[in-house]
Simulated scan of single mutants.
Amino acid sequence: MSLAQTADVACTKCKFFDDHVAQMQAKDDGLCRYNPPVNQPSEKAHGLWPVVSRTDWCGHFSLDGAATAGNAD
């Protein structure tokens, strides 16, 4: 079964997803913390983390260990 066919695959369930609500314009968005922030052209500009939707997913998807730890029987 591929990841695309699994209901548990979504950025919101990934250990690299940061639900940074205070800085997000849309409540369904978050930050992907898998890779380092992307540098900006100006020296004084801050790096930016990629903004992703809670329902997005990618090839780096990894279930959040904290979310799954309580479900192991």
Rank of each mutant, 00 (worst) to 15 (best):
H20W: 13
F16W: 09
V9N: 03
G47F: 00
F17L: 03
V9P: 05
Y34H: 03
H60S: 12
R33Q: 10
Q5L: 13
K44S: 08
K13W: 02
C58G: 12
S42E: 02
F61T: 02
E43H: 07
C14V: 07
P37E: 13
T12G: 10
D28R: 06
G47S: 03
V38K: 11
H60C: 08
F16S: 08
A7Q: 11
E43Y: 08
V51R: 06
P36S: 02
D19N: 15
T55W: 07
K27N: 15
E43C: 05
Q40N: 13
C11T: 00
R33P: 01
D19H: 11
W49L: 09
N39L: 14
G65K: 12
T6W: 03
V52Y: 01
Q40P: 00
N35P: 00
K13Q: 09
Q5E: 13
C32Y: 03
A26C: 07
M24A: 02
K44C: 05
H20F: 15
Y34G: 01
A4P: 01
T68N: 05
C58Y: 03
F16M: 04
F16N: 10
M1C: 08
V9W: 02
W49D: 08
A26Y: 12
D8N: 12
W57K: 04
V38Q: 15
T12M: 14
S42Q: 06
Q5K: 14
L3K: 10
L31I: 05
V38T: 14
V51P: 02
C58N: 07
L63I: 15
A22H: 07
V21R: 14
D19V: 06
R54M: 11
G30V: 03
Q23C: 10
W49Y: 15
